[in-house]
Amino acid sequence: MRDLLVVSIVLAVLPFVFRHTWVGVMLWTWLSVMNPHKLAFGFATELPLAAAAAGTVLISLLTTRDKLRMAWSPPVGVLFGFVIWMCLTTAFAFDPAGSWVQLNKILKIQLMTAIALMALHERKHIELFLWVNVLSVGFFGFKGGIFTILTGGSQ
């Protein structure tokens, strides 16, 4: 049942991503931070839902009606400098194979971060982005609090 709910939510939101990239950023953030598909016990646990959301966001960069612009500021410059620094230091890592695998993951996340920086420029977008993060993390705090109250913290 949870599988159908999560997949239905994702499939219902994906068409809106083509029109508004910021909707895709919200969906990808929710799937990445909360991992609702990992709370299901069936087929959805192994579906690459966040990758589907990210792919749709990349396509939406071409189809969106929204203005996408990078908010160049000193923190953004530092972030991109740090990404370049990670690429350089990975080349000289003690475990090159494992380091390149991890760098690949990080670069995908940083790509979505850059898209979020371009798409989330209105106040309502930023507030909604904060709420998606707060509620995604807060869900586990609430769930863990209930568990602790009911069990006294023991399993």
Results as ranks from 00 to 15, higher is better:
residue 11 L to S: 10
residue 74 P to C: 01
residue 96 P to N: 04
residue 122 E to L: 13
residue 27 L to I: 12
residue 145 G to M: 05
residue 105 K to I: 11
residue 97 A to H: 09
residue 141 G to E: 08
residue 126 I to K: 15
residue 47 L to A: 13
residue 79 L to K: 14
residue 40 A to E: 01
residue 24 G to L: 02
residue 79 L to Y: 14
residue 62 L to P: 00
residue 7 V to E: 09
residue 71 A to S: 14
residue 78 V to D: 07
residue 51 A to E: 12
residue 142 F to C: 06
residue 147 F to K: 15
residue 1 M to H: 13
residue 117 L to C: 10
residue 98 G to D: 08
residue 142 F to R: 05
residue 57 V to T: 14
residue 113 T to N: 11
residue 103 L to K: 09
residue 69 R to E: 13
residue 42 G to E: 00
residue 77 G to F: 10
residue 137 V to N: 06
residue 95 D to Q: 12
residue 16 F to E: 06
residue 18 F to W: 07
residue 129 F to P: 00
residue 114 A to R: 05
residue 19 R to G: 13
residue 58 L to C: 12
residue 139 F to T: 00
residue 44 A to R: 02
residue 3 D to H: 00
residue 108 K to C: 09
residue 95 D to L: 08
residue 52 A to K: 02
residue 107 L to K: 05
residue 116 A to C: 06
residue 65 R to Y: 08
residue 83 V to M: 08
residue 14 L to M: 14
residue 89 T to E: 10
residue 27 L to C: 04
residue 79 L to W: 12
residue 95 D to W: 08
residue 90 T to I: 07
residue 41 F to Q: 11
residue 123 R to A: 10
residue 151 T to R: 07
residue 133 N to P: 03
residue 129 F to S: 06
residue 118 M to N: 03
residue 84 I to M: 11
residue 109 I to R: 11
residue 28 W to F: 12
residue 51 A to S: 11
residue 88 L to Y: 06
residue 13 V to R: 03
residue 77 G to L: 15
residue 89 T to G: 01
residue 64 T to R: 02
residue 83 V to H: 06
residue 112 M to P: 03
residue 21 T to M: 05
residue 66 D to N: 10
residue 74 P to S: 05
residue 15 P to Q: 04
residue 69 R to Q: 11
residue 25 V to F: 00
residue 151 T to S: 12
residue 17 V to R: 02
residue 26 M to I: 04
residue 129 F to V: 00
residue 19 R to W: 10
residue 60 S to I: 05
residue 119 A to E: 02
residue 111 L to I: 12
residue 26 M to R: 02
residue 37 H to Q: 15
residue 28 W to C: 00
residue 19 R to I: 08
residue 112 M to R: 02
residue 35 N to A: 15
residue 66 D to I: 01
residue 124 K to E: 14
residue 78 V to S: 09
residue 74 P to T: 04
residue 5 L to Y: 11
residue 61 L to A: 06
residue 13 V to Y: 01
residue 114 A to T: 10
residue 39 L to Q: 09
residue 38 K to F: 08
residue 116 A to D: 01
residue 35 N to I: 07
residue 117 L to D: 01
residue 16 F to C: 07
residue 154 S to Q: 14
residue 76 V to Q: 06
residue 108 K to T: 11
residue 128 L to W: 09
residue 4 L to P: 00
residue 46 E to P: 01
residue 144 G to E: 07
residue 110 Q to P: 01
residue 59 I to K: 10
residue 16 F to A: 13
residue 130 L to K: 13
residue 66 D to G: 09
residue 146 I to P: 06
residue 116 A to M: 07
residue 150 L to W: 08
residue 101 V to M: 11
residue 67 K to M: 09
residue 8 S to Q: 10
residue 149 I to V: 15
